[in-house]
Simulated assay, not measured.
Amino acid sequence: MKTFLDPRTKAVAGLCTNAVRDLFGKGVREVRAHRTVSSVTSVACAAIIGASIMGAAPVVKPAVNETLAAAPAGVENEQVLLRGSTSGSYFWDDGSGRLGDTGQPAIGKPMQQGLFASPSWPLGTEGYVFYNGRRAKFFIGDRGPGTPSNDGVMLDIDGKTFADLVGASWNSDTLTVGSSQGHIPVEYVVTKWGDGPGKRGTPVPFSSGAWSSS
């Protein structure tokens, strides 16, 4: 039996066909990144065409994960809770009092590579930063930047990680990075919120006092 589709359904079917062709024309990495989108597209197309054939008005409910930010390359297997961009500075507070050192990190762990400071995120929050094709994992273990956060510098990156991101050396004697770059634009992804004091969501300046929220 031949099935006849109305013009609107034919148009939708054409869009669905193009979407599938476009998906399979992408590389493996892109397919993974579009996995949620392709699933939603397939379900939506089947629902719309099926409803039209049966003579009913198409009703498509959005998938649960449809509103979640897509994970960037290298984070596909982890849940993305927040994604954005900001400026990042660097620090190294080991309690030695050198170069503006303000003491041991607030989280109670020794200063180490991967320990970042945030003016507002809960202590223990985890995620990744990306810069110039490089990626680094972090956890929030201290507070800062202070005043610079009023100007949009919302992450203080440990000096060793900062040096790796910009492709420079780290001087453990002077606690400085062998580069003229003191701030860099980074993309961040939060994959786990910490249970320490602080505020979830888009970072806000230190002066807001959000860092002390419980």
Rank of each mutant, 00 (worst) to 15 (best):
P119M: 04
V59H: 13
V31F: 11
L68G: 00
V12L: 05
S212V: 04
Y131Q: 09
V129K: 10
S118D: 03
F4W: 04
A210T: 07
G141A: 08
G114L: 05
N18V: 10
L155S: 02
W92R: 11
K199I: 00
A70S: 13
P205C: 05
C45G: 11
K109C: 06
A117L: 01
I53G: 01
G194K: 01
V166G: 09
S169N: 09
S149F: 10
G124K: 00
G124F: 08
V60P: 04
S38P: 03
L23V: 02
V129C: 07
E187A: 12
Q181N: 10
P58A: 06
R135D: 10
Q104P: 00
L115S: 04
A136Y: 01
F24E: 14
K109H: 06
G25Y: 08
G100Y: 10
S118L: 02
T86N: 07
T174Q: 11
D6G: 12
D93T: 05
P72T: 03
G124N: 06
A63C: 03
E76G: 03
Q79P: 04
K160A: 15
K192W: 03
S120N: 06
V75Q: 03
V28I: 13
P105Q: 09
T147R: 15
E126P: 02
F130I: 07
K2D: 13
G97Y: 15
A63K: 05
D93H: 15
S169L: 02
A46N: 11
S118G: 01
E78Y: 02
P105R: 09
V189H: 07
E78P: 03
G55N: 05
R135M: 15
A19K: 02
Y128C: 08
D195S: 14
G124R: 00
T67F: 10
V28C: 06
D156F: 03
A63T: 01
G152D: 04
F116D: 00
W170A: 00
P148F: 11
A63S: 05
A73L: 08
T191V: 11
V186F: 00
V37N: 07
S85E: 15
G114S: 06
T9L: 05
D151N: 15
S207F: 10
F24G: 02
A57K: 04
V20R: 13
I184G: 11
S179L: 14
V129E: 07
Y128I: 09
S207Q: 07
N77I: 02
P203N: 02
E66V: 13
A46H: 14
H34W: 03
G146P: 01
F138C: 08
G144K: 08
A44E: 00
V166F: 09
F24L: 14
P145H: 12
C45H: 13
A63N: 01
A136E: 11
P105C: 10
D6P: 07
V60M: 03
L81Y: 08
R134V: 10
F130A: 10
A106D: 13
P105E: 12
I157K: 04
R98S: 15
P205G: 06
D164A: 08
Y188T: 03
H34Y: 07
D173I: 14
S179H: 14
L5F: 14
R143S: 07
N132Y: 00
A51M: 11
L5S: 09
L99W: 01
A51W: 05
N18D: 15
H34P: 00
V43Y: 04
V189P: 06
G84R: 07
S52T: 12
T176M: 08
Y128L: 09
